[in-house]
Design a protein around this nucleic acid. Structure first.
Length: 838
DNA sequence: GCAAGGTC
């Protein structure tokens, strides 16, 4: 018997070759007497372009829209044409007894295989079988599942759902992009529109609006420093009852407790408690809590974490992970949405751990070997497995790795090892102190057992730290994203003295503090990834909310980074440090689309998520078609089935395509007829987008501008080549020694008066301090004498630690950057002080 | 000049 196995990518083909003992490798396939194993490179076949159907469609014209092909056709993708031809010629052989589809176990994997077969002209379904598993492809899994091949028809519905996804995205994208661009007719400006990119853009635009509209509200909190012979503690005034006129923009857990909106209430309370010298400890509640190690990384989780910790964009993280997987072979397949491994992976994990232990011995001291077993369901869980397992390290990082690769690898490594550590155990203490009938709350947290936190520190920069209770903490961090604003309020006290109920509480100090509510944060890569992964909060209906939990998102893990970059390339959003902020162009597009009922659907994450849901229903719930699936999706049968559907609900498979076509035709017509009262001038594109943003450099594609763009690129190049001085940093960033400008040099930021004739000032701050690369913003913070945020630094041995940086004056000619470690365990030595003066 | 989905 001769069989051909087709996988989605080379690495899988190689797994199959190993498992089945097919040793000889040819150009594009492995082969022995009975078995040929070949691979795709993702999609090898794509839908025709509009101009492939009709050359007249090459030129964009309003009159030729909408483009709705009667039958959609495919063609090989030019970049991978060679591999497609290899597969095609392998299939073009009468001796083939069976073809085994072994692409990834999912909707797109199905599309990849079916379109290759379709385009190769291999239509004999009787000879096609499906290899299907979610397990990692260790030899036993490959061999076992090769003996349990499934009939192709079991997956016809999946192929149908994938096909609908493709054509629906094509119809919306091609037609709406062309129509919007043509209707707006702004010289050279492309206004792309798509199911995913437009929904994501809307989120970012809405966030900008929210922030622009936001009016901070003033409120007060009252802190009291208590003491008794046992020690000191700080209590925060609170009241259980709702206060009249409470703040809307303060989260629920704060507004009824600590925040006081009226000054007279503050004065009244202050007057009352000032009379008293001492109060009493009214109650003490202690609770012991356990916290298991975090799940292993999915790609999106890793991207979020790397963005929070290192400021890497989603794309950078994916690129680094891809290199570590593909070239350095020390990470597993990166494009995964799974956070667990399969039970079949246990032996592999044992091998990997023993390999890693030789190199990273210092991270293994607390590993609980009983957790390296199948009873550890947070790691080994077949039920939660999707087509790839979680991201894990395979072997130690080679020594030639870059700093960035080091950062990403270490994250994955420490999360992996932490998964086999014991739980973290801590004690929460809640003290209520009473003073003149007013109540004050103190929260304390004492870690009893570090557990996994000894090797993996959690980053909490993007979420707030308001509550200690993990349930509450989750709630408050998600609330902070949807509420119109929040009150920042630190109430964590690490060490509370060993108080007892009835203890005296001397009132040492009363501190009323005026605060302002803050707007919801700008999106970052991390925050937008989170909302794309889990759009359920944009869904009102409880039933659909439930269905969305985890499964349905906006975009997929493999493309989310790309979507963010597309929005930036289109100048819909711009990056400012870590922030992603909508531009005038982005705001304008969303406004245009929201003017008409159908096109506004595209700006609604709820509607687009619902759309995905319908495709899932088709993949899972529709009765199997007795037709040949390939025929079914390419026949014109559906054309006649024109059930107009008013909204996106549960759409029967048979009318999905008809519905989409109708939707697109109507949406395009809306855009065609729409009257845009606001005439958008090209000059609008160059306007600053808001109070805090810089003017955009939106370059129009006219010849003149292109030229100037080229020129500016050229001049930048020359700048580097000739080492011309760069423009100084901002006006308020001046040399503390002589008042000169701070300019960026090759290795540091220094004083512009460095020449002898200008005073020979030697002030400089090096760009890299213990592994931390400093940007202009950091320099501004340091020069202004402020302390920076907490950063991850590295000592001379390469050990990570967290510290803040601050510039301090040593004498009248010396400044130095002091490194203030987070943990007192790190001893300050002279090494921790970097001189600013050469 | 257009989408989103894979892959490298």
């Amino acid at each position: 018997m001769v069989e051909i196995i087709i996988t989605e990518k080379f690495s899988v083909a190689s797994d199959f070759a190993k498992a089945l003992g097919v040793k000889q490798k040819f150009d594009g396939y492995f082969k022995n007497e009975q078995t040929i194993i070949t691979w795709a490179v993702g999609h090898l076949v794509e839908l025709w372009e509009p101009e492939d159907y009709d050359p007249n469609l090459k030129k964009w014209r309003i009159e030729t829209l909408p483009v709705i092909p009667e039958r959609f056709k495919y063609k090989p993708i030019s970049k991978t044409y060679k591999q497609f031809n290899i597969i095609k010629s392998l299939l073009d052989n009468d001796n083939i007894d069976r073809v085994v589809i072994a692409t990834d176990a999912g909707r797109e994997g199905e599309v990849i295989a079916r379109t290759i077969l379709l385009e190769s002209g291999f239509t004999d379904k009787e000879r096609i079988f499906r290899f299907w598993t979610s397990q990692a492809l260790v030899p036993e899994v490959v061999r076992k599942n090769m003996n349990e091949l499934k009939p192709l028809s079991h997956y016809d519905r999946l192929w149908r759902a994938g096909y609908y996804r493709q054509v629906a995205d094509w119809l919306v994208g091609m037609n709406c992009t062309r129509m919007v661009t043509l209707r707006l007719r702004i010289s050279g400006e492309l206004f792309s529109v798509g199911r995913v990119q437009t929904a994501v853009l809307s989120l970012i635009v809405d966030r900008k609006r929210e922030r622009d509209r936001f009016v901070p509200e003033i409120y007060w909190i009252i802190k009291v420093l208590f003491s008794n012979p046992k020690g000191k503690w700080t209590g925060y005034w609170f009241q259980d009852k709702k206060i009249e006129g409470s703040l809307d923009s303060v989260p629920d857990d704060l507004k009824n407790l600590h925040a006081l909106k009226k000054k007279e209430d503050v004065d009244r309370i202050l007057k009352k408690i000032k009379q008293s010298k001492s109060g009493v400890v009214k109650s003490i509640k202690k609770e012991n809590k356990k916290e298991p190690p975090p799940f292993l990384f999915s790609l999106t989780d890793l991207q979020q974490e790397a963005n929070k910790r290192f400021g890497f964009s989603a794309q950078i993280t994916l690129d680094i992970a891809q290199t570590l997987y593909q070239d350095k072979k020390c990470l597993s397949y990166p494009r995964t949405d799974s956070r667990v491994l399969g039970t079949q992976n246990l032996d592999m994990v044992k091998n990997i751990l023993s390999k890693l232990e030789l190199t990273y011995q210092n991270m293994f001291f607390g590993v609980d070997s009983t957790k390296i077993s199948l009873s550890n369901k947070r790691v080994f869980n077949d039920a939660k497995l999707t087509d790839h397992h979680a991201l894990i390290p395979f072997k130690p990082l080679p020594p030639d790795a870059t700093y960035q690769e080091h950062s990403i690898f270490n994250l994955v490594l420490s999360r992996f090892i932490a998964a086999f550590y014991p739980d973290c155990e801590f004690e929460n203490t809640k003290v209520i102190t009473e003073l003149e009938g007013e109540t004050f709350q103190t929260n304390g947290k004492v870690v009893i057992v570090d557990g996994w936190r000894a090797v993996y520190q959690e980053e909490t920069q993007d979420s707030d730290k308001l509550n200690l209770d993990s349930k509450k903490r989750k709630k408050s961090s998600s609330d902070s994203l949807v509420s119109s604003g929040k009150a920042k309020h630190e109430e964590i006290v690490e060490n509370i003295p060993a108080l007892a109920k009835g203890d005296i509480a001397n009132c040492e100090k009363i501190v009323p503090e005026e605060k302002k509510t803050t707007a919801p944060p700008d999106y970052t890569d991390s925050l937008i990834l989170k909302d794309m992964t889990n759009p359920s909060k944009y869904v009102e209906e409880e039933e659909i909310k439930k269905l969305y939990r985890g499964d349905v998102g906006i975009g997929t893990q493999a493309t989310r980074a790309q979507i963010i970059e597309t929005l930036i390339n289109r100048k819909y959003i711009e990056r400012s440090g870590k922030k992603l902020i909508a531009t005038e162009k982005g705001v304008f597009l969303v406004d245009i689309l929201r003017k008409s009922p159908l096109t506004s659907v595209l700006t609604s994450p709820e509607e687009t998520a619902r759309w995905e849901m319908s495709l899932n229903t088709i993949a899972l719930g529709e009765p199997p078609s007795d037709k040949n699936a390939i025929e079914a999706v390419t026949s014109s049968h559906e054309e006649s089935n024109r059930n107009a559907i008013k909204n996106f609900g549960q759409i029967p498979a048979t009318s999905f395509l008809a519905h989409i076509k109708e939707f697109v035709a109507k949406a395009v017509n809306e855009l065609k007829l729409a009257k845009f009262d606001h005439v958008f001038k090209p000059s609008d594109l160059n306007r600053p987008t808001g109070k805090n943003s810089k003017p955009q450099e939106l370059v129009k594609q006219s010849d003149k501008n292109l030229k100037s763009q080229e020129q500016s690129k050229e001049s930048k190049k020359n700048l580097k080549k000739t080492n011309l001085p760069k423009p100084p940093l901002s006006d308020n960033c001046v040399c503390p020694l002589c008042g000169g400008n701070i300019i960026e040099g090759k290795k540091g930021y220094g004083c512009s008066n460095w020449r002898a004739e200008n005073g020979n000032c030697r002030f400089v701050i090096w760009k890299e301090i213990m592994g931390k690369v400093l940007t202009e913003q950091h320099i501004q913070t340091l020069v202004s004498g402020k302390t920076t945020k907490l950063y991850v630094l590295r000592d001379a041995q390469g050990n990570k630690f967290k510290a803040k940086l601050k510039m301090v004056r040593k004498d009248n000619k010396n400044y130095s950057i002091e490194i203030i470690p987070e943990s007192r365990d790190i001893i300050m030595s002279n090494q921790n002080v970097i001189q600013c003066l050469r």
